[in-house]
Design a protein around this nucleic acid. Sequence first.
DNA 1: ATGAAAGCGCTAACAA
DNA 2: TTGTTAGCGCTTTCAT
Lengths: 379, 379
Amino acid sequence: MTRGARRGGSSGAPRSVDVARVAGVSQKTVSRVFNDEPYVSADVRRRVLEAADELGYRLNNAARALASGRTRSIGVVTLGTALYGPASLIMGVERAVRDTGYALRVVNTMEGDPAGVAPAVHSLLDQGVDGIVISEPIDDGRDGDLAARLDVDVPVLVLGAPPFSTPRSLVAGVDADVMARTATEYLLDLGHVTVHHLAGPQRWFAARDRAQGWRSALVGNGRAVPPVIEGDWSAASGYAAGRRLASDAGVTAVFTANDDMAIGLIRALTEAGRRVPEDVSVVGFDDIPVAAYVTPPLTTIRQPFDVVAQEGIKRLVHIIENPQADPLPASEPPVDLILRASTGPPPTRPPRDRGRRIAHRPDAGGPAPPAQATAPAQN
Amino acid sequence: MTRGARRGGSSGAPRSVDVARVAGVSQKTVSRVFNDEPYVSADVRRRVLEAADELGYRLNNAARALASGRTRSIGVVTLGTALYGPASLIMGVERAVRDTGYALRVVNTMEGDPAGVAPAVHSLLDQGVDGIVISEPIDDGRDGDLAARLDVDVPVLVLGAPPFSTPRSLVAGVDADVMARTATEYLLDLGHVTVHHLAGPQRWFAARDRAQGWRSALVGNGRAVPPVIEGDWSAASGYAAGRRLASDAGVTAVFTANDDMAIGLIRALTEAGRRVPEDVSVVGFDDIPVAAYVTPPLTTIRQPFDVVAQEGIKRLVHIIENPQADPLPASEPPVDLILRASTGPPPTRPPRDRGRRIAHRPDAGGPAPPAQATAPAQN
DNA sequence: ATGAAAGCGCTAACAA
DNA sequence: TTGTTAGCGCTTTCAT
């Protein structure tokens, strides 16, 4: 057809002036149409759209960004691991960002990079993002507030980390304290005298928070606080911890900071002749896809990654687009304790019911496929 | 210090002219320094860098992209699932892309979107990427070659998919055929008369290819080809399949298209009274982190996601930067069969050694933590 | 409701 | 080895 419409000098792709010419309007009007600006008559809009379609026009984002100073993109800093939790969070972020119409740029901090997130953040800033998401930051061991050191001039959303003090920065995520307390108190309610904790690497804020929640649950209930065992999230480290714990007859309940470690732990306990849950109860964390199918099916804590991501992104975009307005309030996403078969009363004394709301279902999650009794967390 | 150096009109950020002024050179020289172009004296370079540092200058990528027509960024289309395989591949891609100095933009195809990857690819094109990675595409059921329909004008790398015919498009990944044959023939070598297959959803090319490899291994060895059972990658679907298979006494060996399904399958078999591996052998796929710690530890196929990603990206970047040159050759990444305890000879007849190179180690992977005997695939 | 002109900050030729 | 001059394709003002 009218394809020949004088394509620009070099690159050959049609530009908005080309569309304008075909549609018989000014270039600015084309711009208006593509930005959904007001004051464009229906007729003109239609003609512009037709012309654009005919030419195969697509807006040049580099030019748009240069002229407007905004990129309509959000950068996310990840850890670059395929661990279920972080990976799920990232997937949630992708989806949420897409829904907002922003583009997503991703960088990962080199694993174990002593420099921490700073270089990653700066590389995003160089790319010109309108906002930044930091997913599951780990402590880089430096002094001073992370935010302060970063010196960012765009809003920042931190997922799964402790408060972060900067104007225009947000934190989203489920309160780790609540989750860890839910797990710990559930075990206490089953009658266990105390609960051991197999923690994640303490450089991770998420791991630290879970340990803290466990600790305060014990303290709050007047129980002894056993020493924390630190793993590295891997099943192998859970296995190693299990070998150590197996020899301690005082261990009847373990709250584990993720499911992979719980599975390794259970294997070690089982091999050592300590049955789960008859001798030792184990609560995991994450509810990984296979958790219901391992032996025994794993009682675990599940957090709604998608909700967390979606809510966080919504608040971030709100700040980006309404810098002056008050930030949107954060909601408290639901936490689920998924009851399955890796937990039960302690071997010696019978469970004493302290009248709490989470009942143990001895047969829960046994064989049936999704078998997931759900108890909402107390908030 | 000299901070006051007249910041540009509106946005406040220093521009290259500001740096030029402070350094006492022309703006173009600043550009040269930041692009590592030749013909800049060491002294000038130093002065420019100092000035830039002093002003806190950072190159504006939108302007650069607009002027150069290149964005130095690569877009990746993902499935948006946290499945271990796809997630691992993405992490590998992130790392590989970072190493090349390119930025990464991510979009995911809406899960189960009938429109397939096309809209995702176009959204990347709109953002102006220099190359595209499509990770684990699934068949959208349309006629014609995917690449042809997409009508892309940048190089495309497809990870884990079938050949793809477009000039400037590449495929990377381990030959699924080799992997599936390795698993299947290993089971035949143990003495099993035939091998059943629990496949992934057949819309996925990866699932299809694995099924095909299994099939041709059976045919090539003159064995009966049992009907394929199709799962959806989930442990739940593996469990469902296991219930069906358990009642069939002819089933002594199952090759499963991923570990999650294998774990579900094993649970169902065990519950039905069929022991693994004594009655039924199971080989998984992926070697997920907990595979060595479930009961029994899972014999499985592992592919080197990081190598695949790295190699693919290297080839993609090569095409981007040397459009005329011949594409880099693809190498064949190593495939490992990880021998653990979910496989053994069939219950009735003794294993007959057909003189192949993979020996069964009855005690492999039992208790010890990483216990992973590795047998390289035949290539 | 529409248009004209003026940049956004950089790279790309081409000089010098 | 360095500088000059034009744009890249869009969004902004400000007119109309």
